[in-house]
């Protein structure tokens, strides 16, 4: 199945023939998991043979994340199941709600929790199974979940804002961050000082945690769809424009500053197509980006960027780096998955 493309021995391509819903790297830092629209997951590991389909859901995978344990992933499906998949392809069904969709999932190793959302409700599961599952409710459907780096706070985005919950205590009421509109994916800056949401509109919204200061980041031609903080939180790289828009987060946040950009120009890979996936390298100042036309670039604002691939057949939907930052896995709507190997 795997084939080396003629133009580069560093690229390995698979055709999984289903929409790539998510790509994650397990806590061990090296095992990739690919969740697909046909309900299967593929494990891609440097030491493993060809990735075989593992049937996880009767339906589609809707949400995918690294598990709190080091060698596993979490997948939520439209069969109402939350399933743990380990690197050997063994499955454990952690929760099942018939007739519902598990649309959001996240986990944190340090806090020993797994969190998933069904509609307006999110459920916090204790990895050790000592505590009862905790249900937390929101005014409207949860659009995104994110736990901060320290593993203390859970952010759940929804219509008109974000609810912040403490994971250690059983607080009955969350702290609410309000902003009119529908908030989808949510992410914390690495230091936990900022919280950013992708909105239904072509914009991001952010809050500075110290004082609740609002940040409106707009000007996109399309939905943002993907955002990634750089390793030290210096910039937030985002999709939604025909170049990679990078908001500066050093020194008080992006307020009043123009964003930096890269990824178009001489290579002409984007042909006006918006960026649909971004991922910052965990070790170097390099950002990978994929476009709606399937093109892939690597770069950083202010330095010359390079094209990994020109236009391909389908929009890029997901990408992730391994922890060493020398392997990048990319997936698209047509189910093509590309492994880019930067190792010597």
């Amino acid at each position: 199945m795997a084939s080396n493309t003629p133009d580069s021995e560093r690229l390995k391509t698979w055709s999984f023939d289903a929409f790539v819903v998510g790509i994650s790297v397990a806590g061990n830092g090296r095992t990739f998991g690919v969740a697909l629209g046909d309900g299967t997951v593929r494990i891609v590991d440097a030491e493993a043979p060809e990735p075989a389909p593992i049937t996880v859901h009767n339906g589609a995978c809707l949400s995918f994340a690294p598990d709190a344990t080091p060698d596993a992933f979490l997948s939520g499906g439209d069969d109402g199941k939350l399933v743990r998949i380990n690197a050997n392809g063994e499955l454990t069904t952690l929760a099942e709600t018939k007739g519902k969709w598990v649309e959001q999932v996240t986990a944190h190793a340090g806090a020993n929790v797994r969190v998933y959302a069904i509609g307006k409700d999110a459920y916090v599961l204790d990895v050790k199974g000592k505590k009862e599952p905790r249900k937390i409710s929101h005014p409207t459907t949860v659009g995104g979940l994110a736990i901060n780096a320290k593993g203390k706070r859970l952010a759940a985005s929804h219509y008109n804002g974000v609810s912040l919950w403490w994971l250690a205590t059983q607080d009955s009421k969350p702290q609410e961050l309000d902003w009119k509109g529908s908030h989808l994916a949510v992410t914390w800056s690495p230091d936990g000082d900022y919280l950013i949401t992708e909105m239904q509109e072509n914009a991001l919204h952010g809050w500075r945690m110290s004082d609740g200061q609002h940040m409106r980041m707009s000007g996109y031609g399309a939905k943002v769809r993907s955002m990634s903080f750089s390793r030290r939180g210096v910039v937030l790289a985002t999709g939604g424009a025909d170049t990679v828009i990078c908001w500066p987060f050093s020194g008080g946040g992006p307020m009043g500053k123009a964003p930096l950009e890269f990824g178009s120009g001489p290579m002409n890979v984007s042909d006006g197509s918006p960026v649909t996936a971004v991922s910052c390298n965990p070790k170097r100042d390099v950002i990978a980006a994929g476009f709606a036309n399937g093109a892939l670039v690597l770069g950083n604002p202010g330095v010359r960027s390079v094209a990994i691939s020109g236009a391909r057949k389908a929009p890029v939907t997901a990408m992730a780096w391994n922890a060493a930052g020398d392997r990048l896995l990319v997936g698209d709507e047509a189910g093509e998955v590309v492994l880019v190997d930067f190792r010597e």
Partner: peptide, 15 residues
């Protein structure tokens, strides 16, 4: 309808 946008998006994953 926000729910519809979400559901249609998810259905498109198994188009």
């Amino acid at each position: 309808r926000g729910d519809l946008i979400r559901i249609l998006g998810a259905l498109m994953k198994r188009r």
